[in-house]
Each structure stands twice: as structure tokens, then as C-alpha cells.
Amino acid sequence: MKLFSRTTPVSSLAGRPEHSPTSPLSVHAMTVAYHQRPVIWDVEYEAPAQALIAIVGPNGAGKSTFMKACLGIIPRATGLVEFWGKRFEEQRHRVGYVPQRESVDWDFPVSAIDVVCMGRYGMIGWFRRVSREHRSRAMECLEMVGLSDFAHRQINQLSGGQQQRVFLARALAQEASLYFMDEPFAGVDAATERSIVEILKQLKADGKTVIVVHHDLSTVADYFDNVVLLNTRIIAHGPVSSTFTNDNLRRTYGGRLTILEEVGESMASQR
């Protein structure tokens, strides 16, 4: 009986690439369903290391669901998600997460520095207090996003852009190697957007991978080097230059957006 050896790359579904254990995130045959309807359908993905990756797709395409399912915040119907070849539970400390800004109550009685300290909680562990070193590290992170003057300000007295930067500082405080960010540019002013992009580029330069749910198609090419086009399933993924094409976009958005044409043209003229 002829059997293949394990040394050849194997996968449960032939023709699909076996994921390398060095990839920060590999998703294999992931399906997330809500009442029998797939929200994410049989997604196969491997994120490159040290990249800024945008997840792009129409509303209701399952972009946030994809992130949350990867992190186990919502259950998967099936599928395998590995971080550097291991399960999330073993790699938790290397993965940072920035939820949507609207997902929390900004009227909560905490100060900005308290929120940033939350990023350190994973390192601190159960029961132990936040030590002075952790606090000063959190302060440094706030400084990186330019909010050190607001450290003791209540979070409801911050503007939308500042709140988003506090979230970013919290993610920085996690000192992860892979970041998931759910719409960090939603409802922020142009200046904040620029400073967030600067931070993302810095993260990449430090060898980290950032996966961002992004809405604004016109800035994808400027901000990111890698893109995932998602509409229930992954339509295309890869470097922006080769993937973010008119054709792929139309397949993702299904001709719903006439603006796509313009975006495509502007892309072409840039190149």
C-alpha cells in the first residue's frame, strides 16, 4: 500500500496550501454560521509576517466576524486557526486585539491610563495587581500615541479620535506580535488617522503584523501593503499591487458600488 509521508506538505483539502508554522495567522477551512446561514464560509488564509494587512469588503461581509472567530470570541462551526502553528490559547500573549470603538461604554468611570493598563492584564495574570513597571510602560504607550497629557482624563471627556488612540495605546501595551484592529479609522479626524497610520507603519518596521478591518477603499493602497478581499469567503488576498484590482473589487462588491470604477482608475493612474 502506498502512503504518502508526512514530510511532504499535507492538508486536509488537497490543492490547498499547507500553512507554514512561521505564519502569524493561518486559517484553515473556517466556517462561521448563524442559524444555518454561513457568515464566513470555508475561509482559507495565511497571513504574511511583518505586513500591514487590510481586510476589505462590503457591509455584512463578515469582516469583524472573521476577526472575532479567529480569536475565539465567537464560536466557529468548524475550522482550524493557528497562530505561528499553535492554537490561540498557547499564543494569547502574542496576539493583540483592538475592538470597534462603539463596542464599549465610553461613559465608564475609568481614566485613559487605566484603559491602557488593561493591555498589560494578560501579562499580569489573575489576581495580581498592576505594578509600577506595568503602569509606566502603559504611560510610554500613551506617549507614543501623543496622549500623555490626557492620561488621567476620564475617557468620556476624550474626543472620538482620542478614544481611538487610547485603544491603540492599549494594544501597544499588549506588546503583541500580531494585532487585530476592528475599524480603527472609524469616526476619527484626518490628523488622528495620519498618526494612527504612522504607528501602524512603526509596528510593521518593528517586525509585527497588523490586520485591520478597513472601510475606506481610497486609502487602502496608501496605508497597507497587503489586502484581503472578503465577502463571506475570501475573494482574493495578497499584495495590494496585484490583488487590489478592479476585477477583484467588482467580484467582492458585486457591482454594487459605482465608486469602484473611480477608485480603480485612480489606482491605475497612481501606478
Binding site: 446561514r37 464560509w41 465577502n231 463571506t232 467580484r251 467582492t252 462588491y253 458585486g254
Partner: peptide, 14 residues
């Protein structure tokens, strides 16, 4: 799903 992207979602029944 690839051919009928815009109408597909409501019909998919796994």
C-alpha cells in the same frame, strides 16, 4: 458565490 456575489448571500444554505 463568485458568480453571483451580490445576491448570493441570501441563498446560501449550508
Amino acid at each position: 458565490l463568485t458568480t453571483f456575489t451580490d445576491v448570493a448571500l441570501s441563498h446560501v444554505d449550508y
